[in-house]
């Protein structure tokens, strides 16, 4: 699963990122480095720019200024770098008329995964959706679609996973299932950056917390040193 190059390719670096919308800076000269193998929770208020940050990393949004490198290469200018990234956004990115299986087969082909059928069936099994694999995606619940999204994002064995608020809209059971899935996905050599505005439940599995505030990374700490920072501690208490 983790090849020799994956160590290199799972390091994320952002330098001096600026992104403006309507002339307003959302990210204002932001820099952050996430090391290989970290599970970093990105916290911050709604509208702080967490989604923008993740979309820039995924190569979906072009920054006005600054540099993004994934293992030393730029995901926007070099399409092949995108092979090492898995991304789950707010929307499930599925074709509603196609079945779960067909959707994943489509994505597996886009990434030119070897042994498409086998890989896809495995992936669906890993998120416990085998009984539903031949149903059109529109008939699946929000929680099931979210799990299927995770399976889609991990289909091509990316060394970096970017997850944007994966817990939104999930009930208690679905959220518990997602906890397990996440831990399963956090294999050695894989970096996960997860945005959550209510991060409390993640602190047990996360290795780091990054706090996005006023367009910059206000704090970036390992979870076991959270006690040293009362301001971040208070913030995490507040948002729950």
């Amino acid at each position: 699963m983790s090849t020799q190059t994956s160590t290199l390719l799972s390091q994320i670096e952002m330098r001096d990122l600026v992104k403006r919308f309507h002339h307003q800076p959302v990210l204002n000269h932001l820099s952050l480095r996430i090391n290989d193998g970290d599970l970093c929770v990105l916290v911050g208020d709604n509208g702080a720019g967490k989604t923008t940050l993740l979309r820039i990393l995924a190569g979906l949004v072009r920054p006005n200024h600054g540099i993004v490198t994934i293992g030393g290469a730029d995901p926007i200018s070099d399409p092949q770098v995108r092979r090492f990234i898995g991304y789950v956004g707010h929307q499930p990115m599925f074709y509603q008329d196609l079945t779960a299986l067909e959707n994943l087969v489509h994505y597996a082909r886009l990434y030119q995964v070897e042994a498409v059928q086998h890989t896809v069936i495995q992936a669906i099994q890993s998120v416990g959706l085998t009984p539903y694999q031949d149903q059109p995606v529109r008939t699946l619940s929000r929680g099931m679609q979210q799990r299927l999204s995770l399976a889609r994002a991990a289909l091509h064995q990316p060394s970096i996973l970017l997850l944007d608020e994966p817990y939104t809209g999930l009930d208690q059971d679905a959220a518990a299932f997602l906890d397990d899935t996440l831990q399963g996905l956090h294999t050695p050599g894989r970096t996960i950056l997860l945005a959550a505005h209510r991060p409390q439940r993640l602190l047990t599995i996360a290795s780091h917390v990054a706090w996005l505030k006023d367009g910059v990374i206000h704090r970036h700490l390992p979870v076991d040193r959270l006690g040293e920072d009362p301001e971040l501690g208070r913030y995490l208490q507040e948002v729950g």
């Binding site: 979906l60 956004g89 499930p92 990115m93 074709y95």
Partner: peptide, 19 residues
């Protein structure tokens, strides 16, 4: 609009190929 629904277009944009 098929690609617009559920942001399926993002799924295509993420793929490792010239867009």
């Amino acid at each position: 609009s098929l690609e617009r629904e559920n942001n399926a277009l993002d799924g295509l944009l993420l793929a490792p190929m010239d867009r």
